[in-house]
Design a protein around this nucleic acid. Sequence first.
DNA 1: AGCTTCTAGTAAGCCAGGTTGACCAAAAGG
DNA 2: CCTTTTGGTCAACCTGGCTTACTAGAAGCT
Lengths: 139, 139
Amino acid sequence: MSSPARAVATLYRRFQTAANDAYARRGWKDATLSHVQFLTEMDEEGTRLSDLASALGTTKQYAGKLAKDLESKGFITLTGDPTDRRAILAKPTARGRAFYEDACDVRTELESDFLSRLSPSRVTTFVALLDDLVGPQRQ
Amino acid sequence: MSSPARAVATLYRRFQTAANDAYARRGWKDATLSHVQFLTEMDEEGTRLSDLASALGTTKQYAGKLAKDLESKGFITLTGDPTDRRAILAKPTARGRAFYEDACDVRTELESDFLSRLSPSRVTTFVALLDDLVGPQRQ
DNA sequence: AGCTTCTAGTAAGCCAGGTTGACCAAAAGG
DNA sequence: CCTTTTGGTCAACCTGGCTTACTAGAAGCT
Protein backbone atom coordinates (compact mmCIF):
# COMPACT_ATOMS: atom_id res chain seq x y z
CA MET A 1 0.00 0.00 0.00
CA SER A 2 2.76 2.41 -0.86
CA SER A 3 0.72 4.49 -3.26
CA PRO A 4 -0.62 7.60 -1.57
CA ALA A 5 -3.42 7.72 -4.13
CA ARG A 6 -4.64 4.30 -3.26
CA ALA A 7 -4.29 4.94 0.44
CA VAL A 8 -6.41 8.04 0.15
CA ALA A 9 -9.04 6.18 -1.84
CA THR A 10 -9.20 3.39 0.70
CA LEU A 11 -9.37 5.79 3.58
CA TYR A 12 -12.18 7.68 1.95
CA ARG A 13 -14.26 4.65 1.17
CA ARG A 14 -13.82 3.20 4.63
CA PHE A 15 -14.89 6.40 6.27
CA GLN A 16 -17.89 6.75 4.00
CA THR A 17 -19.22 3.27 4.61
CA ALA A 18 -18.52 3.53 8.31
CA ALA A 19 -20.44 6.79 8.48
CA ASN A 20 -23.42 5.50 6.52
CA ASP A 21 -23.51 2.40 8.67
CA ALA A 22 -23.36 4.47 11.83
CA TYR A 23 -26.30 6.61 10.72
CA ALA A 24 -28.33 3.50 10.02
CA ARG A 25 -27.45 2.03 13.42
CA ARG A 26 -28.68 5.18 15.08
CA GLY A 27 -31.98 4.86 13.27
CA TRP A 28 -31.35 7.28 10.42
CA LYS A 29 -32.16 4.85 7.69
CA ASP A 30 -30.90 5.82 4.24
CA ALA A 31 -29.12 8.92 5.41
CA THR A 32 -25.66 9.31 3.95
CA LEU A 33 -22.50 11.29 4.41
CA SER A 34 -23.31 13.50 1.45
CA HIS A 35 -26.61 14.48 3.05
CA VAL A 36 -24.70 15.57 6.08
CA GLN A 37 -22.28 17.64 4.06
CA PHE A 38 -25.25 19.32 2.47
CA LEU A 39 -26.80 20.06 5.86
CA THR A 40 -23.49 21.44 7.07
CA GLU A 41 -23.63 24.27 4.57
CA MET A 42 -27.24 25.20 5.30
CA ASP A 43 -28.15 27.92 7.74
CA GLU A 44 -31.28 28.41 9.78
CA GLU A 45 -32.73 31.17 7.65
CA GLY A 46 -32.57 29.02 4.53
CA THR A 47 -29.94 28.75 1.84
CA ARG A 48 -30.31 28.83 -1.91
CA LEU A 49 -29.63 25.64 -3.79
CA SER A 50 -27.07 27.28 -6.01
CA ASP A 51 -25.25 28.67 -3.00
CA LEU A 52 -25.17 25.18 -1.58
CA ALA A 53 -23.87 23.84 -4.85
CA SER A 54 -21.02 26.28 -5.01
CA ALA A 55 -20.23 25.90 -1.31
CA LEU A 56 -19.89 22.17 -1.87
CA GLY A 57 -18.04 22.54 -5.14
CA THR A 58 -20.61 20.55 -7.03
CA THR A 59 -23.23 21.18 -9.69
CA LYS A 60 -26.65 22.78 -9.29
CA GLN A 61 -28.16 19.59 -10.63
CA TYR A 62 -26.64 17.46 -7.95
CA ALA A 63 -27.59 20.01 -5.32
CA GLY A 64 -31.19 19.86 -6.57
CA LYS A 65 -31.15 16.09 -6.43
CA LEU A 66 -29.79 16.01 -2.89
CA ALA A 67 -32.28 18.67 -1.85
CA LYS A 68 -35.24 16.65 -3.10
CA ASP A 69 -33.87 13.63 -1.39
CA LEU A 70 -33.45 15.42 1.92
CA GLU A 71 -36.90 16.93 1.60
CA SER A 72 -38.51 13.56 0.97
CA LYS A 73 -36.82 12.25 4.10
CA GLY A 74 -38.13 15.17 6.11
CA PHE A 75 -34.75 16.71 6.87
CA ILE A 76 -35.32 20.01 5.13
CA THR A 77 -38.09 22.10 3.65
CA LEU A 78 -37.89 23.77 0.28
CA THR A 79 -39.62 27.10 -0.17
CA GLY A 80 -39.50 29.78 -2.80
CA ASP A 81 -37.31 32.75 -2.04
CA PRO A 82 -39.68 35.74 -1.66
CA THR A 83 -37.02 38.11 -2.97
CA ASP A 84 -36.26 36.09 -6.10
CA ARG A 85 -38.90 34.02 -7.75
CA ARG A 86 -36.35 31.78 -9.47
CA ALA A 87 -34.63 30.78 -6.28
CA ILE A 88 -35.40 28.03 -3.78
CA LEU A 89 -34.46 28.13 -0.14
CA ALA A 90 -33.49 24.99 1.70
CA LYS A 91 -34.06 25.14 5.43
CA PRO A 92 -33.51 22.38 8.00
CA THR A 93 -36.49 20.95 9.86
CA ALA A 94 -36.39 19.95 13.52
CA ARG A 95 -35.80 16.41 12.39
CA GLY A 96 -33.05 17.60 10.10
CA ARG A 97 -31.33 19.39 12.94
CA ALA A 98 -31.65 16.33 15.14
CA PHE A 99 -30.08 14.18 12.47
CA TYR A 100 -27.35 16.71 11.95
CA GLU A 101 -26.42 16.67 15.61
CA ASP A 102 -26.30 12.93 15.60
CA ALA A 103 -24.20 13.04 12.47
CA CYS A 104 -21.74 15.36 14.18
CA ASP A 105 -21.41 12.87 16.99
CA VAL A 106 -20.83 10.13 14.49
CA ARG A 107 -18.21 12.20 12.75
CA THR A 108 -16.36 12.91 15.95
CA GLU A 109 -16.52 9.29 16.90
CA LEU A 110 -15.35 8.00 13.56
CA GLU A 111 -12.63 10.54 13.19
CA SER A 112 -11.22 9.77 16.57
CA ASP A 113 -11.59 6.12 15.75
CA PHE A 114 -9.78 6.50 12.46
CA LEU A 115 -7.15 8.80 13.83
CA SER A 116 -6.59 6.82 17.01
CA ARG A 117 -3.67 5.07 15.38
CA LEU A 118 -1.80 8.33 15.42
CA SER A 119 -0.52 10.31 18.32
CA PRO A 120 -2.33 13.63 18.96
CA SER A 121 0.47 15.65 17.47
CA ARG A 122 0.47 13.54 14.34
CA VAL A 123 -3.27 14.08 14.05
CA THR A 124 -2.68 17.79 14.01
CA THR A 125 0.00 17.36 11.39
CA PHE A 126 -2.24 15.19 9.28
CA VAL A 127 -5.14 17.62 9.35
CA ALA A 128 -2.84 20.50 8.51
CA LEU A 129 -1.39 18.58 5.60
CA LEU A 130 -4.82 17.79 4.26
CA ASP A 131 -5.86 21.39 4.53
CA ASP A 132 -2.80 22.48 2.64
CA LEU A 133 -3.36 19.88 -0.03
CA VAL A 134 -7.01 20.56 -0.56
CA GLY A 135 -7.54 24.04 0.69
CA PRO A 136 -6.73 26.78 -1.79
CA GLN A 137 -7.93 25.53 -5.14
CA ARG A 138 -4.98 25.38 -7.47
CA GLN A 139 -4.83 27.10 -10.84
CA MET B 1 -12.75 22.63 4.86
CA SER B 2 -11.81 21.71 8.39
CA SER B 3 -13.28 18.25 8.26
CA PRO B 4 -10.58 15.70 7.55
CA ALA B 5 -13.21 13.38 6.13
CA ARG B 6 -14.31 15.88 3.56
CA ALA B 7 -10.75 16.83 2.71
CA VAL B 8 -9.90 13.21 2.08
CA ALA B 9 -12.96 12.79 -0.11
CA THR B 10 -12.11 15.84 -2.17
CA LEU B 11 -8.52 14.82 -2.55
CA TYR B 12 -9.55 11.38 -3.67
CA ARG B 13 -12.02 12.58 -6.25
CA ARG B 14 -9.63 15.13 -7.66
CA PHE B 15 -6.90 12.59 -8.05
CA GLN B 16 -9.24 10.10 -9.67
CA THR B 17 -10.58 12.48 -12.29
CA ALA B 18 -7.12 13.86 -12.95
CA ALA B 19 -5.79 10.36 -13.48
CA ASN B 20 -8.60 9.28 -15.78
CA ASP B 21 -8.22 12.50 -17.78
CA ALA B 22 -4.48 11.96 -18.06
CA TYR B 23 -4.95 8.43 -19.40
CA ALA B 24 -7.36 9.72 -22.01
CA ARG B 25 -4.96 12.49 -23.02
CA ARG B 26 -2.26 9.91 -23.56
CA GLY B 27 -4.54 7.98 -25.85
CA TRP B 28 -5.75 5.35 -23.39
CA LYS B 29 -9.40 5.98 -23.95
CA ASP B 30 -11.72 4.60 -21.28
CA ALA B 31 -8.92 3.39 -19.07
CA THR B 32 -9.40 4.24 -15.43
CA LEU B 33 -7.55 4.33 -12.15
CA SER B 34 -9.20 1.13 -10.99
CA HIS B 35 -7.93 -0.69 -14.05
CA VAL B 36 -4.45 0.40 -13.12
CA GLN B 37 -4.80 -0.79 -9.57
CA PHE B 38 -5.91 -4.11 -10.94
CA LEU B 39 -2.89 -4.31 -13.24
CA THR B 40 -0.63 -3.42 -10.34
CA GLU B 41 -1.50 -6.62 -8.54
CA MET B 42 -1.07 -8.85 -11.56
CA ASP B 43 2.17 -10.67 -12.27
CA GLU B 44 3.61 -11.87 -15.52
CA GLU B 45 2.79 -15.53 -15.00
CA GLY B 46 -0.86 -14.78 -14.48
CA THR B 47 -2.85 -14.20 -11.34
CA ARG B 48 -6.12 -15.72 -10.24
CA LEU B 49 -9.12 -13.47 -10.11
CA SER B 50 -9.84 -14.29 -6.52
CA ASP B 51 -6.26 -13.54 -5.56
CA LEU B 52 -6.65 -10.18 -7.27
CA ALA B 53 -9.90 -9.57 -5.42
CA SER B 54 -8.38 -10.23 -2.04
CA ALA B 55 -5.23 -8.28 -2.86
CA LEU B 56 -7.39 -5.30 -3.70
CA GLY B 57 -9.71 -5.80 -0.77
CA THR B 58 -12.74 -6.07 -2.99
CA THR B 59 -15.19 -8.76 -4.05
CA LYS B 60 -14.74 -11.57 -6.52
CA GLN B 61 -17.66 -10.18 -8.47
CA TYR B 62 -16.04 -6.85 -8.97
CA ALA B 63 -12.74 -8.46 -9.84
CA GLY B 64 -14.51 -10.50 -12.50
CA LYS B 65 -16.15 -7.41 -13.90
CA LEU B 66 -12.90 -5.48 -14.05
CA ALA B 67 -11.17 -8.47 -15.62
CA LYS B 68 -13.71 -8.70 -18.43
CA ASP B 69 -13.40 -5.02 -18.97
CA LEU B 70 -9.62 -5.14 -19.17
CA GLU B 71 -9.79 -8.14 -21.47
CA SER B 72 -12.19 -6.41 -23.83
CA LYS B 73 -9.82 -3.46 -23.99
CA GLY B 74 -6.94 -5.78 -24.82
CA PHE B 75 -4.97 -5.11 -21.64
CA ILE B 76 -5.02 -8.64 -20.31
CA THR B 77 -5.81 -12.15 -21.39
CA LEU B 78 -7.88 -14.56 -19.37
CA THR B 79 -7.03 -18.23 -19.50
CA GLY B 80 -8.04 -21.21 -17.47
CA ASP B 81 -5.61 -22.29 -14.80
CA PRO B 82 -4.30 -25.70 -15.87
CA THR B 83 -3.85 -26.77 -12.26
CA ASP B 84 -7.38 -25.86 -11.17
CA ARG B 85 -10.24 -26.04 -13.59
CA ARG B 86 -12.33 -23.57 -11.63
CA ALA B 87 -9.73 -20.85 -11.67
CA ILE B 88 -9.00 -18.14 -14.22
CA LEU B 89 -5.63 -16.56 -14.71
CA ALA B 90 -5.34 -12.92 -15.68
CA LYS B 91 -2.14 -12.04 -17.49
CA PRO B 92 -1.12 -8.69 -18.95
CA THR B 93 -0.70 -8.34 -22.71
CA ALA B 94 2.03 -6.24 -24.31
CA ARG B 95 -0.54 -3.48 -24.67
CA GLY B 96 -1.49 -3.88 -21.04
CA ARG B 97 2.12 -3.54 -19.96
CA ALA B 98 2.52 -0.47 -22.14
CA PHE B 99 -0.52 1.10 -20.59
CA TYR B 100 0.67 0.22 -17.14
CA GLU B 101 4.00 1.95 -17.71
CA ASP B 102 2.24 5.02 -18.93
CA ALA B 103 -0.05 4.88 -15.95
CA CYS B 104 2.94 4.77 -13.63
CA ASP B 105 4.26 7.92 -15.27
CA VAL B 106 0.89 9.54 -14.82
CA ARG B 107 0.82 8.54 -11.22
CA THR B 108 4.26 9.95 -10.55
CA GLU B 109 3.35 13.14 -12.34
CA LEU B 110 0.06 13.59 -10.58
CA GLU B 111 1.40 12.73 -7.19
CA SER B 112 4.21 15.18 -7.49
CA ASP B 113 1.71 17.68 -8.81
CA PHE B 114 -0.65 17.10 -5.92
CA LEU B 115 2.08 16.99 -3.36
CA SER B 116 3.99 19.96 -4.73
CA ARG B 117 2.30 22.20 -2.23
CA LEU B 118 4.23 20.48 0.49
CA SER B 119 7.90 20.51 1.20
CA PRO B 120 9.70 17.22 0.59
CA SER B 121 9.87 16.41 4.25
CA ARG B 122 6.18 17.01 4.66
CA VAL B 123 5.50 14.71 1.74
CA THR B 124 7.36 11.98 3.57
CA THR B 125 5.36 12.69 6.68
CA PHE B 126 2.11 12.63 4.78
CA VAL B 127 2.82 9.32 3.11
CA ALA B 128 3.88 7.79 6.40
CA LEU B 129 0.70 9.03 8.04
CA LEU B 130 -1.44 7.54 5.30
CA ASP B 131 0.33 4.24 5.58
CA ASP B 132 -0.25 4.16 9.30
CA LEU B 133 -3.88 5.05 8.88
CA VAL B 134 -4.65 2.58 6.16
CA GLY B 135 -1.98 -0.02 6.48
CA PRO B 136 -2.68 -2.71 9.03
CA GLN B 137 -6.35 -3.53 8.67
CA ARG B 138 -8.02 -2.85 11.97
CA GLN B 139 -10.07 -5.45 13.78
C1' DA C 1 -39.55 50.81 -22.90
C1' DG C 2 -36.97 46.88 -25.03
C1' DC C 3 -33.14 43.81 -25.64
C1' DT C 4 -29.56 40.99 -24.14
C1' DT C 5 -27.29 38.52 -20.91
C1' DC C 6 -26.83 36.27 -16.65
C1' DT C 7 -28.52 33.33 -13.05
C1' DA C 8 -31.58 29.69 -10.49
C1' DG C 9 -33.20 25.59 -11.16
C1' DT C 10 -35.04 21.31 -13.88
C1' DA C 11 -35.08 16.98 -16.88
C1' DA C 12 -32.94 13.14 -18.45
C1' DG C 13 -29.37 10.23 -18.96
C1' DC C 14 -24.60 8.69 -18.35
C1' DC C 15 -20.41 7.21 -15.65
C1' DA C 16 -17.16 5.19 -12.03
C1' DG C 17 -16.69 2.26 -8.60
C1' DG C 18 -18.45 -0.48 -6.11
C1' DT C 19 -21.96 -3.90 -3.11
C1' DT C 20 -25.27 -7.85 -2.03
C1' DG C 21 -27.53 -12.27 -2.75
C1' DA C 22 -28.25 -16.36 -5.07
C1' DC C 23 -26.17 -19.62 -7.61
C1' DC C 24 -22.93 -23.34 -9.98
C1' DA C 25 -18.98 -26.30 -10.74
C1' DA C 26 -14.76 -28.02 -9.33
C1' DA C 27 -11.56 -29.24 -5.58
C1' DA C 28 -10.28 -30.90 -0.94
C1' DG C 29 -11.00 -33.35 3.15
C1' DG C 30 -13.00 -36.63 5.97
C1' DC D 1 -18.70 -41.19 -1.27
C1' DC D 2 -20.31 -37.18 0.72
C1' DT D 3 -19.76 -32.64 2.67
C1' DT D 4 -17.57 -28.39 2.75
C1' DT D 5 -14.79 -24.94 0.79
C1' DT D 6 -13.25 -22.30 -2.99
C1' DG D 7 -13.30 -19.86 -7.74
C1' DG D 8 -16.24 -17.56 -10.42
C1' DT D 9 -20.82 -15.89 -12.52
C1' DC D 10 -25.43 -13.41 -13.08
C1' DA D 11 -28.36 -9.90 -12.00
C1' DA D 12 -29.73 -6.18 -9.56
C1' DC D 13 -28.86 -2.32 -6.78
C1' DC D 14 -26.39 1.74 -4.55
C1' DT D 15 -23.57 6.17 -3.82
C1' DG D 16 -21.90 10.02 -5.57
C1' DG D 17 -21.38 12.27 -8.83
C1' DC D 18 -21.22 14.63 -14.18
C1' DT D 19 -22.97 16.41 -18.98
C1' DT D 20 -26.13 18.36 -22.20
C1' DA D 21 -30.00 20.78 -23.09
C1' DC D 22 -33.55 23.48 -21.46
C1' DT D 23 -36.92 27.25 -19.03
C1' DA D 24 -38.22 31.12 -16.04
C1' DG D 25 -37.05 35.04 -13.95
C1' DA D 26 -33.70 38.97 -12.80
C1' DA D 27 -30.43 42.61 -14.09
C1' DG D 28 -28.12 45.74 -16.93
C1' DC D 29 -27.80 48.71 -20.82
C1' DT D 30 -29.41 51.88 -24.15
